[in-house]
Design a protein around this nucleic acid. Structure first.
Lengths: 180, 180
DNA sequence: ACCTGAACACCGTTCAAGT
DNA sequence: ACCTGAACACCGTTCAAGT
């Protein structure tokens, strides 16, 4: 049977998990699929297009977890956790997100859900977008660092604790902005 | 005259500024220095070692700006600004910092100054280290995003405003933790 | 429509040998 | 001590030609 975009994407995710972003190559991917390199370029325009598809996959995972009942702070914490989890699920996932060429539909959907929670908490459109940016910048910065260096320096429990602390600081900083 | 580490580093910074991290190559660097590729490996063990030296240079710049008189919040804001400025001073500077293999002496000195401000504000050692991590994670996440995609989407003034907002949110979140 | 074959223009790294 | 020459083992991308 012929390849298609989803088969290539699945194999790409497996290769990323095995070798990491630095060793990720279209040639190895072609070999894993039992095909010549050129064949990949029928399905994806470039290596970056493939990495963008991986980023979208991660963004979709981060958006798939249901919002908990509860107040805006609890929902924000759940969204932050979901984003980190989705990136940690793949080797160098945070760097793939950080290096994507442009946010695709899934990345925008993720951000929109985040902004919706903030708007429902009482923020105006501009402030909600800014607040959403603060939270995602923090989560991305934390997780890029975590995957690049933290994994061998701290236990998972310590990293979870540090992340939870950071999320609570950001949420605490947003609290005075919401009415009530 | 023969090459030395500082000459190679200076040329590397110039090449990074011109072509960005993705196009940065030891072979182009050798050509710019009028030397064969192998010559670079006498001075730096690998391309990554060279990028680590660039990261240290950026960290040194970020630590070089004097602390303003004022309270801990003003000093924290100045440190955050200094870090962002030092990364923005070079093409893909934030990604070079994010991808460094380990924090060198300059990166540790930067972090220590940050932690010192937080300790003087009244935080205990563990909380100060955690709070320092929150601020640097936010600044790194923001600036990686800014250099990867923001430069063509928003004006410098808009990005400055957004960054200032984020810093004030993080500082606001830390405020309840400091005594007084 | 989808893939092969083969090429093009690159990479990072190593190391004997030169000076 | 510092660099050359030359190789090794790779890259991403393109594209005529095949099926």
């Amino acid at each position: 049977m012929p390849l298609d975009r989803s088969i290539v994407l699945k194999a790409a995710l497996e290769q990323l998990d095995e070798v990491g972003l630095d060793e990720f190559s279209t040639r190895k991917l072609a070999a894993a699929l039992g095909v010549r390199v050129g064949a990949l370029y029928w399905h994806y325009a470039s290596k970056q297009a493939l990495l963008d598809a991986i980023a979208e996959h991660i963004a979709a995972d981060a958006t798939a977890v249901p919002l908990p009942d509860g107040n805006w702070a609890e929902q924000l914490a759940a969204i932050a956790q979901a984003l980190r989890d989705a990136m940690l699920a793949h080797t160098d996932g945070a760097r793939v997100i950080a290096c994507m060429s442009a946010p695709g539909p899934m990345a925008r959907a993720f951000f929109e859900r985040l902004v919706t929670v903030l708007r429902e908490a009482g923020l105006d459109a501009v402030t909600a977008a800014s607040a959403g940016d603060v939270l995602t910048s923090y989560v991305n910065g934390f997780t890029v660092e975590e995957q690049a260096r933290g994994i061998r320096r701290q236990s998972r429990a310590e990293r979870d604790r540090l992340f939870g602390f950071g999320v609570s600081v950001v949420i605490g900083g947003l609290r005075p902005l919401v009415g009530g």
